[in-house]
Structures are given as structure tokens and as C-alpha cells.
């Protein structure tokens, strides 16, 4: 169909859709949700406590501090993670340079060996520290990795379905996200496997406004297939600390900055 033939069709759909057209454009909703979830302020820090419950009801704890700096809003980012618990990983540090146009660079420093190890992992959908959170859940999934469709808009949520452009790279067939219309925080996500069954959920359990930014204080990811879940709590959340780019380098991997040790 040539472009000009589209016009009557567009006019028709505009008439049928009526007031819905006043709502933000789908791309805007998605990028705004991404910014609210992963790019609040120019930088930030949080103490993170993960409680991992396995399918035999045993719990494991992960405590770490995370520092983040945005190179560009919605774009490249720097992450620094300083582990505190369990004690076998205490003082281990992890550095991520997140890029939009290529695989992230990741390094880990193992203090007992004084070793800066470069991590080859390109798979973003592997567990972070044995939890039910994937690396991607903590630092965000690339927006252009999926096709997006607005399934529903109600009084509270924009409900958006996401279908991966490269299905072979991921374990899900699709996932649906509920984005809060007030503040654009993604409040819930449901992942469907290739047979169409729901096997993984993310729920935000507690939200607060910190320095003007809507901030998740507690969330849970559940594995409905294998059983088990991880609850993550964020505390001492701060924004716009003026973190220097240099903090996200090998120097500070070997000797974590005060901002992470506090």
C-alpha cells in the first residue's frame, strides 16, 4: 500500500478510537517507564537486600550496595556493585558498563586473588548472584529488543505486551507489563513461555517518592515453574550524588569508593 492510501484508514481508526488518541504515544509510555525505572536522576545509590527462597523453602541472603551513573538519559550507564553478604563474596566488586549499541562490559574483582576478571557473559537473562532476578531485571532490558503493543489502558495502568525480536535469545515468548499511569513505574510483569503458560512474575510491593523520584523499595520475582522467589528491598536510596565517572573503573574495583562502602 502506498502511504497516501493509508490516510482514510488512519482517519477511520482515529474516529473509532476517539479519546484514546489523547493518551501518550506507545513509544513515549515505554521510554518514560524505562527512565522512571532505571534512570532516575543523573546518578543514584542504594543498599540492596535480597532474600532468595528456593523451591525447598530454604532462604539465602544477598546484601550489596549499588551505584549507578547515567551517561545519557535512557542510554549508556555505569554500574558498580559492592557485595557485603554472604561472607564468601564479601568485598567482591562488580562493574558494568552498559551500552545501547553493543554487549555490556563487565568486570569482577576477587579480593582474595587480587584478580580483576573480565566476564564474558553476554546473556543478560542469567541469574544475578543466584537470585530470581536476572542481570537485565536490575539494569533494564533494551527497549528495542522487543516489539511492543498496548493491550489495554484502564484507570490505573497502561498494559503493554512485549514480544522479543530475537526469540531464540530469551527464555520467554512474551511478557506483559503493567505501568502505573500516575508515575510511569512498571508495577507488575508476567512472562509467558513458548507454550503460552505463565511461568515468571515480577511484582512491585512497595513504592516511595525519594527526592521527587518514584522509587521501588520492595519487589518480588517468582519462578512459577521451578518454584521459589526472591524479594529485593532497597534502602538508603539517594539520587544526584554527583558520582564521578572515574568511580566506575578498575581503580575502584580494587578499592571500593566510600560511596559504596558506607
Amino acid at each position: 500500500m502506498r502511504p497516501k492510501n493509508l490516510f482514510p484508514l488512519l482517519l477511520l481508526s482515529a474516529l473509532l478510537a476517539g479519546p484514546a488518541l489523547a493518551a501518550p504515544d506507545l513509544d513515549d509510555i515505554i521510554s518514560q517507564a524505562n527512565n522512571v525505572a532505571y534512570y532516575s536522576g543523573d546518578d543514584g545509590r542504594a543498599d540492596v537486600a535480597m532474600t532468595i527462597l528456593d523451591n525447598q523453602s530454604r532462604t539465602r541472603e544477598r546484601l550489596f550496595t549499588i551505584l549507578r551513573k547515567d551517561i545519557e538519559e535512557g542510554g549508556d550507564q555505569l554500574y558498580f556493585v559492592y557485595f557485603k553478604r554472604p561472607s564468601d563474596v564479601r568485598k567482591t566488586t562488580f562493574l558494568v558498563h552498559k551500552y545501547m549499541d553493543r554487549d555490556d562490559d563487565r568486570w569482577m574483582y576477587l579480593p582474595s586473588l587480587d584478580l580483576v576478571k573480565r566476564i564474558a557473559a553476554s546473556d543478560q537473562r542469567t541469574s544475578f548472584m543466584g537470585s530470581h532476578f536476572f542481570h537485565e531485571d536490575l539494569s533494564g532490558r533494551h527497549l528495542d529488543a522487543d516489539h511492543h503493543a498496548l493491550l489495554e489502558e484502564n484507570d490505573t495502568f497502561y498494559v503493554i505486551k512485549n514480544i522479543p525480536k530475537e526469540p531464540a535469545d530469551v527464555e520467554f515468548a512474551s511478557y506483559t507489563v503493567w505501568i502505573d499511569k500516575k508515575n510511569f513505574l512498571p508495577m507488575k510483569a508476567e512472562y509467558l513461555d513458548k507454550s503460552g503458560a505463565l511461568y515468571r512474575t515480577m511484582e512491585v510491593l512497595e513504592v516511595a517518592t525519594i527526592a521527587g523520584y518514584p522509587t521501588v523499595l520492595k519487589s518480588r520475582i517468582s519462578d512459577l515453574e521451578a518454584g521459589g522467589s526472591t524479594v529485593t528491598r532497597f534502602s538508603n536510596v539517594k539520587y544526584n550524588l554527583g558520582l564521578d565517572d572515574n568511580l566506575f573503573s578498575e581503580r575502584y574495583l580494587r578499592r571500593p569508593p566510600r560511596e559504596a562502602r558506607q
Binding site: A120, A121, S122, D123, T126, S127, E171
Partner: peptide
């Protein structure tokens, strides 16, 4: 050379 060759599976 090191790379991930499967889920949670790395070869070097």
C-alpha cells in the same frame, strides 16, 4: 578466548 556457550555455561 572465553565466551558463554549456553545458559550458565562458559567455555574458555
Amino acid at each position: 578466548f572465553e565466551r558463554e556457550i549456553g545458559h550458565n555455561f562458559t567455555a574458555a
